[in-house]
């Protein structure tokens, strides 16, 4: 049985004004197992967001193949839900209606919709705000809404593009711990793009490290020093093996920076 998601020899070239071409992603191959958390890590210019957008179907690859359940993806679809760095709340709907939106357009009956929305809003800790408008919420809370909205729509894979990049430090690690909880509770497969090394090691079952200009797969890193998923970040940082892995990845980042 092959992996849930397969990225096979994927390249992406952008045409620049003036007739030049920019290779953002160059011959990248990796696979994501069902139920796992895969983190795409790399310096800026490593094409990690571009890879995520190709998986989402928001960009098309110049060559290679992206397969979900052995089927080539064709455009965006509900089975690949995405959470963006910038706020994406539908401001004219309450938190509850935001979370119901995906299910509503996919024909889930109202009662079931409401129940699922309540479950996922509870999971991200926003039950008190189910009838509030998103404009009343803080940045971290809005990202929780976006996560609940995507999860409630039951995607095969949750794609996140630097989802906590705009948040302050404290909210950020709370959200990281929330993602571990959510992954455990829902069993959702996740692909998370970040350039934060701590975040990558804490969240990942597998880190796909990309080099920059052009984006190439440099190394697949497995944080095997972790005994499964831990909910507290400080517990992960205290593990033997954490410091060594962080140091190794920092070196890789630095090498990329000096290129």
């Amino acid at each position: 049985m092959s992996a849930l998601l397969q990225i096979q020899n994927v390249s992406k070239t952008f045409d620049l004004p003036g007739g030049q071409a920019l290779t953002a992603v160059d011959d990248v191959t990796f696979a994501v197992e069902k139920g796992s958390i895969c983190v795409l890590l790399g310096p800026s210019g490593s094409g990690k967001s571009t890879i995520l957008r190709m998986i989402a179907g928001l960009e098309t690859q110049s060559s290679g193949a992206v397969l979900l359940n052995d089927t080539p993806i064709d455009g965006p679809g509900r089975e690949r839900g995405m959470v963006f760095q910038a706020y994406s709340s539908f401001d004219w709907m309450s938190v509850g209606k935001n979370v119901e939106f995906g299910m509503k357009i996919n024909g889930v009956p109202a009662a079931e919709r409401r129940a699922r929305a309540e479950r996922f809003i509870g999971l991200v800790g926003l039950s008190k705000f189910i009838d509030a408008y998103p404009s009343r919420l803080s940045g971290g809370m809005r990202q929780r809404v976006a996560i609940a909205r995507t999860l409630a729509n039951a995607p095969d894979v949750l794609l996140m593009d630097e989802p906590f990049g705009a948040l302050d430090a404290e909210t950020r690690w709370q959200m990281q711990e929330l993602m571990i909880e959510v992954a455990e509770a829902s069993g959702t497969t996740m692909i998370i793009v970040t350039h934060d090394i701590e975040e990558a090691i804490f969240l990942a079952d597998k880190i796909v490290f990309l080099s920059s200009h052009p984006g190439r797969l440099k190394e697949e890193i497995l944080p095997t020093f972790k005994p499964g998923r831990l909910r507290n970040k400080e517990d992960v940082i205290a593990l033997p093996g954490y410091a060594e892995m962080e140091r190794k990845i920092m070196r890789m980042m630095r090498e990329e920076g000096h290129k």
Partner: peptide, 20 residues
């Protein structure tokens, strides 16, 4: 982001234009 969110939630063209 609003439009792309709608698309990745499974919205078709009509839903994207009229509901988002």
């Amino acid at each position: 982001e609003l439009i792309e969110t709608a698309l990745t939630l499974g919205a078709n063209r009509r839903v994207t234009v009229f509901q988002v």
